[in-house]
Amino acid sequence: MRIKPRAGDFVVIAVIVISAVLLAVSFYQKNSIEKTAIILQNGTVLDTVRLDRLEGLYTLDYEGEYPGTIEAENGKIRFAHAECPDQVCVNTGWISRPGQIAVCLPAGVMIRIEGIDADGSDVDIIIK
């Protein structure tokens, strides 16, 4: 049996695509001169790392139900090790562009990169 699409199906698809594009545009940030990684656990800032000024290897161990280690070098940052069951955070790999995030949902830890773009404006988006 084949699917017989109705007109409404295309409306659903259009709504999904349009909202995806609008969201993507609102989160897109230009290449930055300054890059700061913000490490948050359940809304509290654990540390901020200036990725563009990083010398050598940076590591941070976080505690909690599912502890883990974050490392940064050469303008990029990642979850190096985590004891969470799904390992999605480790599989995300390195992130380096402003607007990118890496998240460990079980541990409630998020790495977010923010930057000042080449135009000199220091605020791209404010999310409350």
């Binding site: 995806a20 594009v21 969201l23 993507a24 989160f27 948050l40 359940n42 809304g43 607007g99 990118q100 995030i101 998240v103 949902l105 409630g108 998020m110 977010r112 999310i127 409350k128």
Partner: peptide, 13 residues
């Protein structure tokens, strides 16, 4: 809501 941060919406698209 859990992470008290909206940045995770970056994944939604």
């Amino acid at each position: 809501l859990m992470m008290r941060n909206a940045a995770i919406f970056a994944y939604l698209p």
